[in-house]
Design a protein around this nucleic acid. Sequence first.
DNA 1: AAAAACCTTGCACAGTCTGCAAGTTTTGCA
DNA 2: TGCAAAACTTGCAGACTGTGCAAGGTTTTT
Lengths: 170, 170
Amino acid sequence: MQNGLESLTTDEIAAASGVSTRTFFNYYPNKEAAAIGHPPEFSESDKEALRTGTAPLAADIKRLLGRHIETLAKDEAILRMVGKILRCNEKARGILDGFLSAQREDLTEVFCSRIGNRQTAAALAHSATNAIGGAIFLWEHEDGITLSQALDRVWEGLMDASRLLSSTGE
Amino acid sequence: MQNGLESLTTDEIAAASGVSTRTFFNYYPNKEAAAIGHPPEFSESDKEALRTGTAPLAADIKRLLGRHIETLAKDEAILRMVGKILRCNEKARGILDGFLSAQREDLTEVFCSRIGNRQTAAALAHSATNAIGGAIFLWEHEDGITLSQALDRVWEGLMDASRLLSSTGE
DNA sequence: AAAAACCTTGCACAGTCTGCAAGTTTTGCA
DNA sequence: TGCAAAACTTGCAGACTGTGCAAGGTTTTT
């Protein structure tokens, strides 16, 4: 069993769900999309807080990410299972990638309305979504660490990296 | 024609390549992988230069990225075609994502050996690969801009973002 | 209670991809 | 040169995903 998904047929999934295979495909465009579902979005109020926040930008971003990771932490089991699927199913990765790209664009708009410059906003949005992804990755690969702790570690790395990039020496 | 790839069957591709369909699948694991191919890697010597460089980190990174984007610029036609495929084929996105993740890990090692801290290295690697992706995106969506110019714009955004993140005020 | 809108399902079908068992070509070496 | 081994190509059968369509059933509306 390389995947878990690959060894599950749509017939089996449909039967287990108590609908016909045809109906399964009325609900979901394909097997992978059904398996990974739709990842949670950043909350509107958190985005609004980021848009209008007055604390240093880094602090406001960290708050958004922290709250988002808390949301994710509510479904650790799902997160772990989805991670397993993503690790060995290319199509699933592509589908998730689509969702995350949309979220990143969304976040880019938020940053854009706070700081004005689109390229800068895009870089920030990338950093933010990478931090979430990185935190999940760390949490998956390191025992006895919570998602929040993982985010803190990743965040520190991002802060270090930012300092390194913006300083002229090393 | 939503995709271009979806309306092309493997039978057609194989026939056009002068081999049987079965042989096509001996060469490539699937249609999408065949269509997008393997993206170019960062050159070993450029990575080595980054590993052992003594200029400010940002300058060394920028050099690596600049040289990589020059490599990409040699095949603009391919880049454009692959972009078109990626935009509407989830499986292809997932496959590319796998390649790029591997490249990013590779780059993480490079940064790691230069600066020591793994999380920081990972953040830098993310920023670097995002810059490449962002530059291609910008080049695709803005008329009359070269890849190098696009990279410069994206790079400025990254520098701004780094300063914003590492400063306590705004 | 009839009509309209909606949902589920079966069926046929196009397409991807794999394993297997030939057959064919290339390589290497005697 | 010539033959055996290795490597490659192919056809075929088959499992599986996903779609269009039309028939049948359910729910909602009037």
